[in-house]
Nucleic acid binder design. Sequence first.
DNA 1: AGACTCACG
DNA 2: ACGTACGTGAGTCTC
Length: 891
Amino acid sequence: MSNRTIMLIDGSSLAFRSFYSILDIERFKNKAGLHTNALFSFNRMLDNVLQEFEPSHVLVAFDKSDVTFRTEKYDHYKAGRQKAPSEFKEQMPYFRVLLDAYGIKHYDLINYEADDIIGTLAFQADADDKVVIISGDKDLTQLASDHVTVYITRKGVSDLEAYTPLVIKEKWGITPNQIVDMKGMMGDSSDNYPGITRIGEKTAVKLLKQFGSLENMYDRLDELKASKMKENIINDKEEAYMSKDLAQILQDAPIEIAMDDLVWKEKNIEALVDFYRHMEFNSFLKQIQGDSLNVTSQTEDDKQFADYEIVALQQTDEITSEVLPDYAVYYSETLVDNYHIAEIQAVAWADPLTEKVYIMEKDIAFQSSIFKKWLANPQALKIFYDYKREAVIASRYDCQLEGLDMDILIATYLVDTHNAQELADIVNLLDLSVSVSYDEAVYGKGVKKKVPEELGVFHQHLAKKLQALYLAKEPILLKLDEVVMTDLYYEMELPLAKCLAQLEIIGVKVNQTTLEEKNDQVLSRIKEMEDEIYKMAGEKFNINSPKQLGVILFEKLELPVLKKTKTGYSTAADVLEKLLAKHPIVQAILDYRQIAKLQSTYLAGLPPYIKEDGKIHSRFVQTLTQTGRLSSTDPNLQNIPIRIEEGRLIRQAFVPSQEDWLMFGADYSQIELRVLAHISNDEHMKAAFINGEDIHSATAKRVFHLPEDQPVSADYRRQAKAVNFGIVYGISDYGLSQNLNIPRKEAKAFIDRYFEEFPGIAQYMEEIVAEAKENGYVKTLFNRRRYLPDISASNFNIRSFAERTAMNSPIQGTAADIIKIAMINLQKNLEKEGLESRIILQVHDELILEGPKEEMERLTQLVPEVMEGAAQLSIPLKVDCASGKNWYELK
DNA sequence: AGACTCACG
DNA sequence: ACGTACGTGAGTCTC
């Protein structure tokens, strides 16, 4: 009794389908510029079917060339097919590489199609073999039998539909071997053979039920009533027989492989890892490293071990100067991102000279005063993965962290903003000679995330991380040099990391009682608003559910549907605003949403973040945004309400951390437009700034031809402001029309007028897009790069998006650079002058400080001076500032 | 986990 | 014709 499962895959068909299953092809591109979408999708499909069917034998068959015995029979066979796109063709050779790594046999045969190879092997299988055929082409269903099941991809490539003789019977009412008769009658437009004129699937099936086969039909033609159809059948006899012949899959192709060649044993992990690295398939990498780790923890594969010797220190007194080198790699492990609160799983450092890794429990390490002194010693240089994170962690043990030699995370981020995911990625990026597992593979994920039971596995993982960090240093510095960001790294990002560490450690004091009182008030109001809305709707429902809300508004109350989302009706604020006049419930919902947002995100959302010191310590992430801005998380302190008074009051809860101290705020006025004026060198815009004009009014005067000497109306100014914003974002007439709620034509006229009046800006927009196309990236004044692989995409939307990004990124990025410089310089100056005041928040174009009230006068001088002097542009930078008892008062 | 909505610059 | 403003993070619902 055989228990063989033979899997025969139509490689050509599935490769092609894989390509079209991922349409966003520009996202799938490796560093070498190779598209990888088809390979990615094919790999996923392959994984799925191998897992599902657990085959003992596998073959992937490919078509050899366009010319086959079928084209000899009929030279239009498969003619007129669209040529495969080049993005697909370039991936073709790699399918075989992938299959080799999987240890899977692949085969093609001159003059024959993949179908024929599959048909021949399926025929060779024994009756007690289980044969699984996988293809995107329904023609193969003719091979179905009691032991052969044909799986056809439904949509994409992972959704398979099984065709057994029974299914075929139910679907078409015919047997598998009648499928060729059906194809003979109906032809095939994609393979380009004709069949009988005006006979399709329905008629073919009807005729087959009557006659059983094509041959029988022609033998018994007199059973058919005279009709146009009968005429066609008679006239197209030759075509019908030829079409049937073409549809017939061979079961005796002269293949030179035998069933025994198809035996599948296992994947070649090393080859697959290489392949995934080259293709940058990180998710598969993670998966396979997870798999192989599980395997090797049993087989004790040498390759899994670090080169560094692991020294697990157990007691505080084992820390001596012997184990604390002058030059080290330092890393502490946490299982969650928020390092302000994360439990420290271990502290580890390595001496690259002796190739030793020291690993300790945190409590034991931080009890050692010699260890703490070493951390605080600026002469003891250290390579970090994320200095700021380590500095914050050290500060939790009242310890300074000095000796910042290198921050691998920051350097990697600068080289390419997309790469800085986790430490293991850096190994792939730089092709280092050590393999670091992904954290997920070692620690697991979700609720099961934990340090492995086997301490050895954990220590190996740490040792490899440290080794990788050391090995990464030189290559990443070289890369930084190649991309001309060495200065940016040393002069801006490294000093900023220190600055941010301090700022995060200090935190911001938040008055919990203030938030709680406001929360109580708001909660009762929300109740009232709910009741009001239920009354107007005539029923209770979940107002927070866009789905339920959509049903109420657009079905029950029959309001017009102006915009839809992927999944249903849009109930976004801009849509609701257009429906205000139709029903009073709309206003009530808008009001409710506003308050509900304040309540959930801020009034209820912030208090859990307040620590015992009465402060919130957010993380200002330095290595995330594509433009060079910071981002703030846990919680986000860069989006505290301000635009609407009701929300703005929340800022009253943000207060100085000490008595007799005040808050101090300073913000750049129009920094992005000033940057634009500088880099575009547009005379008119520069003049407006140099003359100290209100930029939106000045723009309005030009664009709308208003008199020079009269004040600009509020409405003109509002429109000009919207155009200015649009310009910064990489304008489109559609976007502007949406924003201003005006016809697209008018928006286009505005933009045309704008470019006439500011020709330097028009020129900048053109040139920056050309530059992006030429180089593949754009850069800020300080050489920060953003790569734009989509800039030459064939898809209009994808390309347009990249073009707008090309216009916006140098502007947003340069502004980000400038405030970073300002922060560094300001902190230096505060220190130099011996002031107690300190920066506690950054919100993209503003800095918030706190300090003794006696220092406010000095800050009013110093802060604008430093911020305005951060960059020397061809126009002045302008900073407004204020002080007050809380954040709310800084206006 | 992904979609939607909305807070900020 | 295509159908979108640039950059973020978080709460909520739904599957």
